[in-house]
Nucleic acid binder design. Structure first.
Length: 568
RNA sequence: UGUCUUAUGGUGUAAUGGUAGCACUGCAGUUUUUGGUACUGCCUGUCUAGGUUCGAAUCCUGGUAAGACAACCA
């Protein structure tokens, strides 16, 4: 599988992370014939999350940077937890992120025969033996990090006997747990992984690819390095928790490696995000207990969740780029991710008008039947984005929050006696309002200045505030979903004494059913489209699976300094 | 009471023995038909004690703190 491929000589080390620098050196020294082949090796036991995106960017991105290749390998050595559903979702998410493994799609399960043969060889060479103790006994004998282990009574089982037992293990003659194949290394090693690690265990569960063909399955430590070797992987880049496994990786790989080719494991720090749970086990629990709507719930840190929420591949990659790769156990602020999506959406999302919490405004000196189609810029950040038309009429809706009968200090929005501009429309002066018995504002009255329509000479006049609005007669009602962080503690992983479910934010989802939007939006929105609702936030179009209706997911709110000021 | 790894502003990251820089956050301001965006400025940093060196964030030693490792998970 290894092919000789030219790689780009990257002489300049600027801009390379520490792993890429090591790779640049290896290439310079001509290691592995100057080849670069990385791999992304997910176990198909769950959906990919943003932590995987970091690994994907490292493996695919680095290979691309040097002109090497990156394999997609499914690490499917434990049939109990794995499923094709996950295989398919993983492939979809990698593609969506913009990476391509071409035809380099591999499965650790494809190597079961080779791995089995190698295991037989190791038994014959006296480097492995079949143990028949319980997992408790084996754990007991393993010792602790500070206390050496003791040898299994089966450690010196005759080779022929181990060979025979291993064969019968695979033929299905024994129950799960009855026997294991262990590497004979060093029960006193300071590295726990060297204390005769288990290479094979009996599992009688249908495998999603090999069916019931096998009754023994290799463990990660034995399978991973060998799989890398079989594929011609040169740099096996993984996260820091595998650092302690590296000597064992090297131990097993040495059994195959030749002078001119030996894969190498390198480790970087995994992603930790504030207010975010990244553990696959816990994410699975959220899904199973219906605490979220599924793996793709827009509050989930999964790739598909972020996609539905409205995150773009560019924003995720830009975020990964910003946080970098080191060996320091960091806790990254989710605000950096939020910055990345605002940055991208500000660039690409068309501006539309929507009123979340409407109150009626009547322009008393505007003719009742008149409708003016006012042009509105689609995106001031993009000159080529053009305009769309919005109907202006005597009766409008504005945001409840945008009116106060009497303006507090530094309040620049509508208040009685003051002028504001209606975005892309006229300057209006508020003349009064109608209140209910309980004091709620029912209607607001304004007079418009006909000379101040946007684009006219009289529109030069400056007023402090600009408000977004929709025509009461033309606007449509849509469903909007406001998402907030799923957890309300900064570092949920650190709250070890608490059940993580207690840390869930009860207000992480708010559904608003009657948000008034301009007709243009209602007519043009398609699933996956991004929009900026003026002054409110970025929204992405989604489809409700039960009602089949379009809904708008809030990706992220706009920054609003007035909101902060109110909070003070 | 072991082995391995790490330590640079509030956060994340750069500086590869030679001027501690960048991004985010926060604060202040300028522009603005979005209190957004953009732009400008400000705040804040080499864990600690020694050593090597003309010169140390960088190399060495001790200390301190943090993380990983004791699954028939990956």
């Amino acid at each position: 599988m290894a092919e000789n491929k030219e790689v780009n000589p990257v002489e300049e080390k600027k801009g390379l992370n520490f792993i890429q620098q090591i790779i640049a050196n290896d290439l310079k020294e001509g290691r592995n014939g100057g080849r670069l082949n990385t791999r992304f090796p997910p176990e198909p036991n769950g959906y990919l999350h943003i932590g995987h995106a970091k690994a994907i960017c490292m493996n695919f991105g680095t290979a691309k940077m040097f002109g090497g290749t990156c394999n997609l390998r499914f690490d499917d050595t434990n049939p109990v937890k794995e499923d094709v559903e996950y295989v398919e979702s993983i492939k979809e998410d990698i593609k969506w992120l913009g990476f391509d493994w071409s035809d380099r799609e591999y499965y650790a399960s494809d190597y079961f025969p080779k791995l089995y043969d190698l295991a037989v060889r190791l038994i014959k060479e006296g480097k492995a033996y079949v143990d028949m103790q319980t997992s408790e006994q084996i754990a007991e004998q393993k010792g602790t990090p500070t206390k050496a282990g003791v040898a299994s009574p089966f450690r010196n089982r005759p080779i022929d006997e181990s060979l025979d037992l291993f064969d019968r293990m695979n033929k299905g003659e024994f129950d799960e747990g009855a026997y294991v194949l262990r590497a004979k290394i060093d029960m006193a090693s300071s590295n726990m992984h060297f204390r005769d690690p288990i290479m094979y265990r009996i599992i009688k569960h249908e495998h999603h690819r090999t069916g019931n063909q096998w009754n023994v399955y290799p463990m990660y430590d034995y399978a991973h390095g060998q799989s890398d070797y079989f594929e011609g992987v040169t740099h096996s880049i993984c996260t820091l928790e595998f650092e302690v496994h590296r000597p064992l990786y090297e131990y097993f790989v040495k059994e195959l490696a030749k002078d001119d080719y030996c894969p190498r494991q390198l480790e970087f720090n995994r992603l930790n995000l504030t207010y975010t749970v990244m553990s696959k086990r816990k994410l699975l629990q959220l899904v199973k207990e219906n605490l979220v709507s599924g793996w793709d719930d827009p509050r989930m840190p999964t790739i598909c969740g972020l996609r539905r929420r409205g995150y773009t591949p560019e924003s995720i990659k830009s975020f990964i780029d910003k946080i970098g790769y080191t060996k320091y156990d960091a806790l990254n602020s989710v605000s950096l991710l939020e910055h990345s999506i605002r940055e991208d959406l500000n660039r690409i999302a068309p501006r539309v008008s929507a009123v979340i919490n409407p109150v009626k405004v009547i322009i008393t000196n505007y003719p009742e039947d008149k409708v003016e189609m006012l042009p509105m810029e689609n995106n001031p950040e993009d000159e080529n984005s053009g305009t769309h038309e919005m109907p202006f009429t005597r009766e409008l809706y504005i945001e409840c929050d945008d009116f106060k009968e009497e303006a507090p200090k530094k309040f620049f929005r509508m208040s009685v006696g003051n002028e504001v501009r209606l975005k892309s429309g006229y300057i209006v002066k508020c003349t009064g309002c109608k209140k209910s018995a309980t004091g709620d504002i029912e209607e607001i009255y304004c007079e418009y200045d006909a000379d101040t329509r946007s684009g006219m000479p009289g529109s030069e006049r400056k007023v402090k505030g600009t408000l977004h609005w929709v025509s009461a007669r033309h606007c449509k009602d849509v469903e909007v979903r406001l998402y907030d962080r799923l957890f309300n503690v900064e570092n949920p992983a650190e709250e070890k004494d608490k059940d993580f479910r207690e840390l869930l934010n009860p207000d992480s989802l708010k559904v608003l059913n009657n948000v008034k939007v301009e007709p243009y939006l209602a007519e043009t929105a398609k699933v996956g489209d991004h929009f900026q609702f003026q002054r409110i936030g970025y929204f992405t179009v989604d489809r409700d699976t039960t009602t089949d209706k379009l809904v708008f997911n809030r990706t992220i709110a706009l920054k609003d300094s007035w909101e902060k000021e109110k909070g003070k």
